[in-house]
């Protein structure tokens, strides 16, 4: 079940140069949230920019009814979002899409996130911890300053390993280099979100070690509910059918996807 609602902004905080956390109250929606699902946010009451912006759930507090989104300023829409202020009323729609598969028993999970792609893995980690899973997060970014989710992960009590491309924090290099140090026999499942080049390496590790994994994909969207068929993609070039990222995803099995290196 999804809803169209008015959310009251609690905070809209700049966490790094172009990374913001938007938190708003929408109790009815919060009750239906599941990791990996996303919200469609109307950025302007004017008709320009026209379309809602799809953003995955970063964190949800069912008790208070608040929903957090982590977003990166990439264009006109997200630029306007930075002007949202506490007590503003915003037009929100969700939760939408298919989220991550939840385990039926406590397992060992590794979450691999890059850049703003870390967003859906936060709420996922919260659920996995509630299910008594062992959760390790491999978190990569360009610089130490962009590792904006680290503290929150630490508070959740997950094991966290970070990597930065400039070496300013943690391992110096791509986060997927940290996969080499993992023991594949100690892990059951992988979850990943971030640049597709990164997710491709996670998928390869998963395949080579006969493991299981899911990834969350991103696409420009119009409706967000599977009506307009705008966010179509062939998961593999030889596939006949296009999936719709909004409705069939955004979460897919990593082995079903051939990742696109430029994205």
């Amino acid at each position: 079940m999804s809803f169209l609602a008015k959310g009251r902004v609690l905070k809209n905080q700049q966490l790094a140069d172009d990374l913001y956390e938007l938190e708003f109250l929408a109790p009815q929606i919060a009750l239906k949230c599941h990791p990996g699902k996303f919200m469609q946010i109307r950025v302007s009451e004017q008709d320009d920019p026209l379309l809602r912006r799809p953003l995955s759930l970063y964190d949800v507090d069912v008790d208070s009814g608040s929903i957090s989104l982590l977003y990166k300023v990439v264009g006109q829409g997200t630029r306007i979002m930075t002007s949202f202020k506490p007590d503003d009323t915003i037009d929100v729609m969700g939760p939408l899409g298919n989220g991550f598969t939840m385990p039926n028993y406590p397992l060992n999970a590794i979450l691999v996130g890059g850049g703003v792609g870390i967003a859906p893995l936060m709420y996922l980690a919260r659920w996995l911890i509630l299910l008594d899973c062992q959760v390790k997060v491999l978190y990569g970014a360009n610089t130490a300053g962009e590792l904006v989710a680290s503290d929150r992960f630490s508070r959740l009590g997950v094991e966290l390993e970070v990597a930065t491309l400039d070496g300013s924090a943690g391992y110096h290099g791509p986060v997927t280099d940290l996969l080499k140090d993992q023991d594949p026999h100690e892990v059951d499942s992988f979850y990943t979100c971030g640049p597709e080049m990164m997710m491709a390496e996670v998928a390869e590790y998963v395949a080579c070690n006969y493991l299981w994994g899911e990834c969350s994909l991103e696409e420009h969207m119009a409706c967000g509910v599977g009506a307009c068929l705008g966010c179509a993609r062939k998961l593999k070039p030889a596939d006949v059918d296009y999936v719709k990222i909004c409705k069939d995803g955004p979460v897919f099995n990593v082995q079903a996807v051939e990742f696109m290196m430029g994205r």
């Binding site: 320009d48 026209l50 696409e219 420009h220 705008g230 966010c231 179509a232 993609r233």
Partner: peptide, 9 residues
Amino acid sequence: PPRIAETPA
């Protein structure tokens, strides 16, 4: 794809 593109209004 891409099948959609946002344009002014």
